[in-house]
Computed example of a mutant assay.
Amino acid sequence: MSRIKKILKWSLIVTLVLIVSIVSFGYWFINLLPKPEISKEELQATLPTDLPYLTENVIEPRGKILAVVTSVGVMGSSGKSTGYELTELSRAYYVFKANGFEVDIASTKGGLPPVVIDGDDMKEFDYAFLNDSIAQGKVRNSIAISTVNPDDYAAIYFVGGKGAMFDFPDNEHIQALLKDYYQSGKVIGAVCHGPAALINVKLDNGRPLLENKTVSAFTNEEELFLIKDAKEIFPFLLQDKLIEQGAKFDEGYLYLEQLSIDKHLITGQNPWSVWALAEAMIAQIGYTPKPRQKSAEENSVSVLITYESKGFDAAKVEIGKACKQNPRSIDRELIAVHSLVATMQLNLGKSFDLIQLLRYSNEYL
């Protein structure tokens, strides 16, 4: 009996030590993140007129681009809510606007579509979109895809969001639009789950649009990391289905920017690909994208890609160059999140490296 008591006693001590250690590490880790430059309240109050990218060197009208979002608000029979990803619409919307294009918003059913707003991902362009009465009017009264005239637009852009997995692939109006746009050489863009729109589209020759096309989209690894039972919830995994229909799937690093350009078909892997994708669409239409100061999030994504492709030292040099110009040009929270993801994957070496990069960036503050 005394032996059992000793075992229980030491088990309790070890458990308490682990709890204290985890709490202490968490406190230390959180303190690595500097206080934001502006308050959350100020950020949430951002207006389109506060963004120099939109208000300076205004470009004359060049035409219209159609952005398409999902009308599905629940993931199948799971009961989990979904919709289109606000950041994937807002950032592309303003790139198109800044480059002289009016943007219409359509959905599979028309009217007010369901939206996913992740407060941790929201930045000034996203809050400006929420405070933009014109943009919000277009969202509330989105055009039913069945009524869209393809001749009205220079390009079409399919916004991501997990709901797209349920209503994009079998929509006959989407299929007709995509066949028309692809065969006429108009620019097609799609990001994250948006490439689900490309599934089941057949050209006049009877072949799948996706056949032998290089594409990127939300990967199996990204999907299953976030939703362990994704195979049961979704009708298919997007990467698998794209490959099944003949696509050459171009997979980038986990939760980092990845863009595929196959002539006038432009696809992006995830939300971190939106800026590059929207600007690539402008270039493919035939215009040089308007100069834009890259966001701290984009700079951090670049650093993380450099770390993955070239190693720690190269990533450290890139951080130094960015922070010498502006100490706030790095999104430290994003680097911290990737460190936590590495820990969850039991890649402790990577996690430690990213913490070291985070600490190094703080030397410039």
Score class of each variant (00 low, 15 high):
Phe234Arg: 04
Ile227Asn: 05
Gln345Glu: 13
Ala342Pro: 00
Leu256Lys: 15
Val17Pro: 05
Lys186Arg: 14
Leu18Met: 13
Gln136Asn: 07
Cys323Trp: 06
Asp353Phe: 15
Phe129Trp: 02
Val72Met: 11
Glu257Asp: 14
Ala278Ser: 00
Ser133Leu: 14
Ile355Glu: 05
Ile227Val: 15
Lys202Cys: 02
Val215Gln: 07
Glu363Gly: 10
Glu221Asn: 05
Thr214Trp: 06
Met344Ile: 12
Pro48Phe: 04
Arg140Cys: 06
Ser273Gly: 12
Cys323Ile: 10
Arg140Thr: 12
Lys40Trp: 13
Ile233Met: 10
Ala322Val: 14
Ile319Arg: 00
Val341Lys: 09
Leu66Tyr: 02
Glu232Gly: 07
Thr343Phe: 12
Glu42Gly: 06
Thr87Asn: 06
Ala196Cys: 12
Ile143Ala: 04
Lys213Asn: 05
Glu232Lys: 10
Asn212Arg: 09
Gly252Tyr: 02
Asp262Cys: 12
Leu334Met: 12
Pro169Ile: 01
Val17Gly: 07
Lys248Met: 08
Glu211Gln: 14
Ser300Phe: 14
Arg328Met: 13
Tyr93Val: 03
Asn31Lys: 12
Lys248Thr: 07
Leu224Lys: 10
Ala197Trp: 02
Leu357His: 01
Phe101Lys: 00
Tyr153Ile: 04
Gln44Pro: 09
Asp132Trp: 03
Gly83Met: 04
Ile105Asn: 00
Tyr94Gly: 04
Glu308Gln: 13
Ala342Glu: 01
